[in-house]
Amino acid sequence: MSVAGPQPTVQLPSVSTPLQNYSKDKKVGEGTYAVVYLGKQITTKRNIAIKEIKTGLFKDGLDMSAIREVKYLQELKHPNVIELVDVFSTTNNLNLVLEFLPCDLEMLIKDKSIVFKSSDIKSWLLMTLRGVHHCHRNFILHRDLKPNNLLIAPDGHLKLADFGLARSLGNPNENLSSNVVTRWYRAPELLFGSRHYTGAIDIWSVGIIFAELMLRIPYLPGKDDVDQIDVTFRALGTPTEQIWPNVSSLPMYNALHVYPPPSRQELRQRFSAATEKALDLLILMTQLDPKSKTN
């Protein structure tokens, strides 16, 4: 590479040295495009997580999800959204310094030795919804809500994480991809391949997480995309033109087995510990027609 030109040092506030500023102590996980380390911010002794993204590894340069994650986390600051502390780069890698959150909701759900009180579920749900509301009021869809992405801080605060699929709701003419959200938490409009959708898809995911918190097992575990449609509507009824006008014009609305919507009694039996108010909320969050979903 030839000389990159004289690099003016003026006007740029230089404060500290990021590499020496953080320590990478322990590797805790490896995702599709990143390795996560635990470490410390040296000056403050604060625990942090470093997500190291290998930029050079990909055929198409820096991964889109990394760009999304940085882009949206830079904008969103909220007690219920994970904090992006810093971004720095080394020769080959991009490093995101994130708040250290040791636990996630999936771990808790799976650990059967922990008993969930209704107050636990309520507060987790409230914190999730606060975080989601903050995203939505900033016109950002998370698009990958699941217990695994709801992290819990040592002080009990729940925070939304993993904004690798997030995107802003911009131009209404733009087509969005319907292939988002982990399958079990995918809203019916996505299952039908809708190219235009709203925050209702996140609310649906929260509803399904709510159900999972009560059941302690995944509520709608479809084996594949086709099975997901069947599992979803067996539990919640098949949408028809009557309850969801124009649903039949969505691309993948065909050859459906028509299940009746569940009666209140059936839901009561399925969620035996739920109060009537909890059921009301669950029903509101899992309305099939995105327009009638509560927000």
Binding site: Q11, L12, P13, S14, V15, T17, P18, Q20, F88, T90
Partner: peptide, 12 residues
Amino acid sequence: IPSITQISRPFF
């Protein structure tokens, strides 16, 4: 590798 913290400068 020297490293310097830089604050984004969107405008000049």
